[in-house]
């Protein structure tokens, strides 16, 4: 099974690399992602403005959090503000795989149905698990790699930029890395499975991508909007979210596996 899964991944990745429509997705989002931590950390001084805190209660609350952070860790206020803003940048990276996967994943099965390439694949001894896992990983891995690479480069660039401007060495904290290295892959996995399911049910690639964009992404964003701010201040909630995402991903895979009916796919065209 492993060998077939690797072949499916190989073919999918090769096909993605040849698909020029996907290049902007793979290039643009990581570039914006790299710029986000740099811009946010450099502009973090604005968080400390007493004028802003005086007119905007939300800014005042953020300023209070930054002050508490500086006090707790014994940091300069500027470093605490920059670290806080890096956490916000971590939120962007958390959502980056979602955006990439939504574009690539919607096409995974329905694209094959359209070009009639599924029948020769299903005529080989490949198992359904090898086929689905190969596709799932081929959709997820490039998105996760792009996210991790962009977050590491973005962190390095913001450290360098902040040091050159303020003479203070900053370092993204646990929340930044948790968002990038743990939550981002899990959210990406869940999105990839949702896309695979949509792709299995649909007959038209554009409809599959539209459904993903109009229903799945807003639902996931809503979920993150509710949990996101809490995750930034509480490690316990972060752990719980990771656990929930893991369980959801496993359930989603089982559901996708059940939805993929070889006979139905062939019969629809037969």
């Amino acid at each position: 099974m492993r060998s077939s899964m690797v072949w499916i991944m190989w073919r999918e990745l090769k096909d993605q690399a040849q698909n020029r429509m996907l290049w902007p997705v793979y290039l643009l989002l990581p570039l914006v992602g790299m710029a986000a931590p740099v811009l946010l950390s450099i502009s973090s001084a604005g968080l400390l403005s007493p004028k802003l805190a005086a007119v905007d209660p939300a800014s005042a609350a953020i300023m209070q959090s930054v002050k508490q952070m500086a006090l707790a860790y014994g940091w300069e206020l500027e470093r605490a503000a920059a670290t806080f803003m890096l956490r916000v940048a971590g939120g962007y990276f958390m959502l980056m795989p979602l955006a990439i996967v939504a574009v690539v994943g919607g096409y995974a099965i329905v694209g094959e149905k359209q070009q009639r390439s599924l029948e020769p694949v299903l005529a080989t001894p490949i198992s359904t698990d090898a086929l689905l896992l190969g596709k799932f990983l081929a959709v997820l891995l490039p998105a996760v790699c792009a996210t991790v690479l962009a977050s590491v480069l973005g962190a390095a660039a913001s450290m360098l930029g902040f040091y050159l401007l303020n003479g203070i060495l900053i370092w993204p904290d646990l929340y930044y890395w948790a968002a990038t290295l743990v939550l981002a892959p899990l959210i990406g996995a869940l999105t990839a499975l949702a896309c695979l399911h949509t792709s299995i049910r649909m007959q038209d690639p554009l409809a599959a991508i539209q459904i993903t964009a109009l229903i799945l992404i807003p639902a996931l964003l809503l979920l993150l909007g509710v949990f996101g701010p809490t995750m930034l201040i509480n490690l316990g909630v972060l752990g719980l979210v990771v656990l929930v995402l893991l369980i959801l991903s496993l359930c989603a895979y089982a559901y996708v596996r059940r939805s993929f009916n070889r006979e139905e796919i062939l019969g629809r065209r037969g």
């Binding site: 499916i8 190989w10 073919r11 090769k14 070009q115 390439s117 029948e119 020769p120 005529a123």
Partner: peptide
């Protein structure tokens, strides 16, 4: 199986298409 519609991956070369199916055939 030689299906009615060949159903190849059109962005890939002929040699890569055959490598892929050879891999799936074990």
């Amino acid at each position: 199986l030689v299906p009615e519609q060949p159903g190849f991956y059109e962005r890939l070369s002929a040699i890569d298409n055959l490598r892929f199916y050879a891999g799936l055939q074990g």
